[in-house]
Design a protein around this nucleic acid. Structure first.
Lengths: 223, 223
DNA sequence: ACCTGAACACCGTTCAAGT
DNA sequence: ACCTGAACACCGTTCAAGT
């Protein structure tokens, strides 16, 4: 068990990219995206800030590696379902839930295109579309919609997490969003007003899955 | 016609939020997201950096106002089509194209949830879903999928624009992406390898619209 | 009321110097 | 080969002082 003091003492074991990424993830999870600085990271690793650059090119590489680590772990744990529809839902839900726990992953996914994490999601979806019977020429488009929808939700949830102070509870947060929606002119925004009433009792995860199901229905309808 | 010298001369007309937002948009469009600093903005407006804070609370408000301005202008110009499907496609394509020209708008849309720009897109889509005959309880989910898909693509395109150096042409960029995809193990990423071949000749806008059509098909199939 | 610009409290990144 | 930490070149934001 690591004591509190050890952190400020001289480190005895060697630095490595893995240990740096691990420490970065801890900071991101505990104190949020803004708390990850090279100074804070160096302090936690009991080293100089310049030492980190021996193992990691820059902050971008660090964030990419951290996100890849989380996503790889998540997708590795997802059950290999025989039903491709269930498999796609499991992948999507896995990404959704992991971003609920690590919101900064959502930010990173929508900021850095074509990183390994994204390709893993893409591959997981694409392989199952073939099993679903989607013709080969249609698979690229179909996998793209699903991926981009997942990335869109990921980005929004990450942004919400940045906005939501930790002490405010969820229902108060939803109520404040609904209130902001209804501030707009009802004549100009009738749909927004109609839907604002549904915000407080709506379930993010359910709505996310409803979206996945709608897209899957669309993919299957044009088969 | 504004001469080059006038910019560094003492400004004679008063500052205003509109003029600041306008100048910010010019900087974002010309020199990219990273070039927008309060110092650069102050220099362009021939004032002190502190003066901007009299009209704008902080950088976030500035970026939100800039994105709102661009989106409002785009959606205002979109034709009010009688066919709700065409209307939704026109809104989606309008947002897609405006982000192609102003990539920073994509970044802003995926960073800042529930800003006016997003609600405008949401309202435009939602109103047409009703016209499409989507039952009221299903409209919230349906509008959400479409919006989140649009936001996902917006974020990715903005990220690509940040990555793409201006001198590199599009086909070379696509080839480099395809090359990065095929670097991964084909046994582990069969789908990615299969699809990589389609990247060079694929059309972003067509694929985006194909996604919109798939989602619309899904929405209509569950009616 | 509005503007000026120096000052403050940060950043990411580099690099001479150490072991 | 790897680490240290001061230094550099920036940021956003504040605020006393001006008009």
């Amino acid at each position: 068990m690591r004591t509190k003091n050890q952190r400020t003492e001289r480190r005895t074991d060697a630095l490595s990219k893995e240990r740096i990424v691990e420490a970065a993830i801890e900071i991101l999870d505990t104190d949020g995206e803004n708390a990850l600085t090279f100074r804070a990271l160096a302090a936690r690793l009991a080293t100089g800030s310049g030492a980190i650059y021996w193992h990691v090119a820059d902050k971008n590489e660090l964030l990419t590696a951290a996100a890849n680590h989380i996503i790889a772990r998540t997708l590795g744990a997802s059950v290999n379902d025989a039903d491709p529809r269930k498999g796609i839902r499991a992948i999507a839900l896995g990404v959704f839930n992991v971003i609920d726990i690590h919101p900064w992953v959502g930010t990173q996914l929508s900021r850095e295109p074509w990183q390994t994490a994204m390709l893993q999601i893409f591959e997981g979806i694409g392989g199952r579309l073939r099993a679903l019977g989607v013709p080969e020429q249609a698979q690229f488009d179909a996998a793209s919609v699903l991926l981009n929808y997942i990335l869109g939700v990921a980005g929004q949830n990450a942004a919400n997490a940045r906005l939501l102070p930790r002490e405010v509870d969820r229902s108060a947060f939803l109520a404040s969003i609904a209130a902001r929606w209804t501030q707009h002119d009802p004549a100009e925004y009738p749909f927004v007003h109609q839907v604002a009433a549904q915000i407080p009792e709506h379930d993010d995860q359910e709505q996310f899955l409803a979206g996945i199901n709608l897209i899957l229905a669309g993919i299957e309808s044009t088969r």
